[in-house]
Design a protein around this nucleic acid. Structure first.
Length: 488
RNA sequence: GGCGCGUUCGUCUAGCGGUUAGGACACCGCCCUCUCAAGGCGGAGAUCACGGGUUCGAAUCCCGUACGCGCUACCA
């Protein structure tokens, strides 16, 4: 195992978003590629919005995607705990050190005061940012106010002579921030909890994180964190900032763009392999032409050098195409297996009938596989093979059954099939193929009449195979039922 | 407002000084065909955001402008 250590640190304020999922995938792939360690840490420092349910959902989504972590919740590890709310000791120890060396100071300004100052500054068109009012407070006086129980936060004292903060981002290259533009940001809130920038830095350092691969929204936080790192005497990790994933309108992805969380895609019948493949490609390229690759191939090819800098628009259509590719590649038995929950949810199959229906489902699988883009489409496609009777679609009746020749086609099909010796797709095809010529009708007329009679619609799974799966009895019953609706 | 980052077909991208600017999704056409798909073949689609440089030569390097996004919170 190499000494690379990376982490994915979601905050459990919601479900696993696809942006977060992509960050997780890159961290995971990087760790696996380098033989390093992948750590999952829960950044639950926002007491208002963090919930255990969200944490559970995130872990579930990670597992579903196939992203396993070496250290973290439910995995253990010797650098834990892996929940920030359980790491208070680390933050207070670090604060003591910062205070001792004069790198942090208490601030007694109230939230209202700060807000007021901010608005005034903004109205004046000047710089926002904290005015450093408490920075020059006398140490003894500050001590006294703290002891008197006055509410206060702790702020980092940004050094005045630091100059430019420069770092070499693994995806964006050299990035420079003038330290003069940084204000003395809050480390510890008045309730004693750490802010993101603070907790994250302390944890990354204590957990020995070597590469911080995270969203673009943290790029501007990086200089702050580097200042903290310097004050604490910790080494600087390699930073790699990933661009955002946007909706079709170029705006930040949100609910109105459709599904945005990993579990929503699962519920829409997207395969985890396809989602990982798609997300990996959103901002990273395998090479100059490869679109489809397995998780193993992703791992062996993944490098930070091939991560792109520009924001990417999420394209559900391409995801669905890719999902279709994965569905088609699946062996029939595997697809039959994956179809099960969807058939059960649609009430077409009960778990009890499952075992004896297995071989039948394996025969069905190849018929649906090449027309499925998502698994949630399967029930609608196969329903006519499960139910005893099928309603005839009004438009299909008008368009097909009421046409001249439909009735004769159904009669002839009934005749031919009722005495058919081997009820197989091949046998059925042979019997039905004879009909058009015998009736003097176009093949399409005959086959569409039979299709509508049997499936109720003009579009269905391949006819002969469908009849084979339906069985002789139900096929003949439907042919007879449709006869009454048909023209001659 | 300040600071930072980004900008190649509609979309995802390849490209890292010399290419007919390549691939994929979507789109269009043809073939296959019992419908729908899948598949095969072909097509259209990018003056590489714009304007200046540097260079024999720039999508590739530099500067500026525009637009987009992020940060500028006791959110993360």
């Amino acid at each position: 195992m190499s000494d690379v250590r990376v982490r994915f640190a979601p905050s459990p304020t919601g479900h696993l978003h696809i942006g977060g999922a992509r960050t997780a995938i890159y961290n995971w792939a990087f760790a696996r590629h380098t033989g390093g360690t992948f750590i999952l840490r829960i950044d639950d420092t926002d007491p208002e919005r963090s919930t255990p349910e969200n944490t559970a959902a995130i872990l579930r989504a990670m597992r579903w995607l196939g992203l396993d972590w070496d250290e973290g919740p439910e995995a253990g590890g010797d650098r834990g705990p892996y929940f920030q709310t359980q790491r208070g000791g680390s933050y207070s120890r670090a604060l003591e050190r910062l205070e001792a060396c004069g790198a942090a100071y208490p601030c007694f300004c109230s939230a209202e005061e700060l807000e007021g100052a901010r608005e005034k500054a903004r109205a004046a068109g000047g710089v926002a940012g904290y005015a450093r009012t408490c920075r020059t407070l006398d140490a003894a006086e500050a001590r006294g106010r703290i002891e008197a129980g006055e509410p206060h936060t702790w702020r980092l004292k940004v050094p005045e002579d630091r100059g430019d903060i420069v770092f070499d981002d693994a995806v964006r290259g050299e990035v420079t921030f003038p330290s003069a533009a940084l204000d003395d940001f809050v480390l510890v809130r008045s309730d004693g909890t750490p802010t993101y920038n603070y907790a994250s830095v302390v944890d990354d350092a204590e957990m020995g994180i070597t590469h911080v691969i995270r969203g673009d929204d943290h790029l501007s936080n990086t200089p702050r964190q580097m200042l903290l790192l310097e004050a604490l005497g910790f080494p600087t990790p390699v930073f790699a900032h990933l661009s955002m994933i946007l909706g079709a309108d170029g705006k930040r992805l949100s609910k109105r763009h459709g599904a945005t969380s990993v579990e929503q895609f699962r519920d829409e019948g997207i395969l985890p392999e396809a989602l990982v493949n798609y997300l990996a490609l959103l901002g990273w390229s395998f090479d100059d032409r490869t679109t489809i690759f397995s998780a193993e191939e992703l791992i062996s090819h993944f490098t930070l050098e091939r991560v792109g800098k520009n924001p990417a628009i999420f394209d559900p259509e391409k995801l669905e195409w890719l999902d279709g590719v994965y569905i088609r590649e699946m062996p029939p038995a595997a697809l039959a297996e994956r179809m099960l929950p969807w058939l059960e949810d649609a009430g077409l199959l009960s778990p009890a009938e499952e075992p004896q229906r297995r071989p039948w489902l394996v025969q069905l699988a190849p018929l649906v596989s090449e027309r499925l883009k998502r698994l949630d489409e399967v029930a609608g496609m196969v329903r006519f093979l499960f139910e005893d009777q099928v309603p005839i679609d009004e438009a299909a009746r008008a368009k097909v059954l009421e046409k001249e020749g439909a009735g004769r086609s159904l009669d002839a099909a009934s005749d031919g099939l009722s005495t058919l010796r081997s009820w197989t797709a091949e046998g059925i095809e042979e019997a039905l193929r004879r009909l058009p010529e015998a009736l003097g009708l176009k093949p399409k007329v005959v086959f569409q009449a039979v299709r509508v009679a049997v499936s109720g619609t003009t579009v269905s799974l391949p006819l002969f195979e469908s009849l084979a799966l339906l069985g002789r009895e139900r096929t003949l019953a439907r042919l007879h039922a449709a006869r009454t609706l048909a023209a001659e």
